[in-house]
Write a protein that binds this DNA or RNA. Structure first.
Lengths: 110, 110
DNA sequence: TTTCTTTATCGTAATATTGCAATATACAAT
DNA sequence: ATTGTATATTGCAATATTACGATAAAGAAA
């Protein structure tokens, strides 16, 4: 099928899945890491940095934006994309809570 | 195309992308959360818990296993799947480092 | 041995994702 | 107004993912 049965899962589960899915491509990881490296980021830089064509990069930026991981400001005819800290906090808190819950488990079976 | 150009990215980028991608489906998030809730987990429980058919769940378990997020022990004719803490640590450390690097940025443009 | 239970695999259909060339858009510069 | 620069969108081909029915495999129970 290819379609995901989102309607059967909780909002939180869908929301975390959407966030992690958006991170689930090396190009998008590379974009995030480039955004961390520079203080101001424009798409044009990424075209030189990544081994992908400009439309492909634009598409990856769109997905990161849809997932709320980055946000973009139009400045003249360039665009300044930045990481949205809220998304990072959310995902970090989630994995941090998993880690805590794991450590609290008594009967580790494996 | 549908194929990912992994060969052009670093091992670490690919590795993080693989981990996050495996988390990027609500059913797999639900599986992880169920594994956290109970101390011992078998696939049969999941079939009752999740709104998906058994082959589909088996497939999701396989992907989590391939990504190193869970590991399975055969016990009789059942299988005990558990979360692999190393994977959680890895992903948690990654997002934690992103968070730190974000906070250290001076020129926030957005 | 036969049957039941549990999990995996195969095959297949439907949909999603990835990637890019071509093109559009929109502002800047001349 | 024309040209150049930066980014987005469209359209398409190739591949991946999701889901499930049917079936296989393998140990447990009878």
């Amino acid at each position: 099928m290819g379609i995901t049965k989102s309607e059967f899962f909780t909002d939180k589960q869908n929301s975390i899945a959407q966030l992690t899915k958006a991170f689930g491509h090396p190009a998008r990881i590379a974009i995030i890491e480039h955004l961390l490296k520079v203080d101001t980021c424009i798409c044009g830089e990424l075209v030189d940095e990544l081994p992908l064509a400009q439309p492909t990069i634009s598409q990856h930026l769109k997905e990161l934006k849809n997932a709320g991981i980055i946000k973009g400001n139009i400045t003249g005819n360039a665009i300044c994309y930045c990481i949205d800290e809220k998304a990072i906090d959310k995902i970090q808190n989630y994995f941090s809570s998993i880690s805590t819950r794991l450590n609290n488990k008594k009967n580790k079976c494996c």
